[in-house]
Design a protein around this nucleic acid. Structure first.
Lengths: 115, 115
DNA sequence: TCCTATACATAGATTATCTATGTATAATAT
DNA sequence: ATATTATACATAGATAATCTATGTATAGGA
């Protein structure tokens, strides 16, 4: 299925922080993990990811450092900060709230069963 | 809770078609129902709704007609078409797919339990 | 040696939504 | 009667998230 890209809006940030909560990762790796775990539903472009990472670093949600591979290639790793962990929890709470409200609109409770 | 507006992206269309599936409605009414059912989480602006309705009409998802109230006020009602019903089903399928993929990214299955 | 995958990056386009504003009428309060 | 507020539709321009397109550079395999 080819999902409307507009649906993605806003959830990419949450997903990236979630990936980084597991362990520190570099950009290209995050793109690949997103594709792998979502069966290619989320094929994030570099032009999407790097600006997000840079902005998150500026906000203090992640910090980055360079690391060399055995082959000599330099990678920029990102690590989630305490502030980023807090932001992730907030984003997840918002996400749940959002889902429940969409559900409430699409499947309204009959009057007699409302709080 | 104040939800990131970017999360809304793309789901408004689905919610509007869903409201219209119940019965024909006019614009202002949809705005109010969205707010009521979502406990004011979705406070859609006219500047958002009317362009969406016009575009949906152009796409053939809805058709509209004017109706007079007892008071003499003229309202423009919208009615979902067959094409719109089909579009709604597609949007709902995409929505479910999207939710399940976000979930798969955020809570990856351990290797041994993957299909 | 050439091609592909890896790796990071930026500029500009696209699109959904918002803010702001405008017009007009009905209902309500003073 | 008159003023205010809610209703009702509408458009223009701003904002922000993502995309497309492009660039640079290196590693690894054919």
């Amino acid at each position: 299925m080819n999902i409307d890209k507009s649906l993605l809006s806003g959830s990419y940030g949450m997903m990236i922080l979630s990936l980084l909560k597991e362990r520190e990762k570099y950009g290209y790796q995050m793109i690949n993990e997103l594709a792998l775990r979502s069966d290619d539903t989320f094929k994030m472009k570099e032009g999407t990811l790097y600006p997000i990472l840079h902005s998150m670093e500026k906000q203090g949600y992640v910090e980055s450092f360079e690391k060399k591979t055995d082959g000599g290639r330099v990678r920029r790793y990102y690590r989630i900060t305490k502030k980023g962990l807090k932001a992730l929890e907030e984003k997840k709470a918002m996400w749940k709230e959002y889902l429940s409200k969409v559900n409430a609109v699409m499947e309204p409770k009959p009057l007699e069963s409302r709080g």
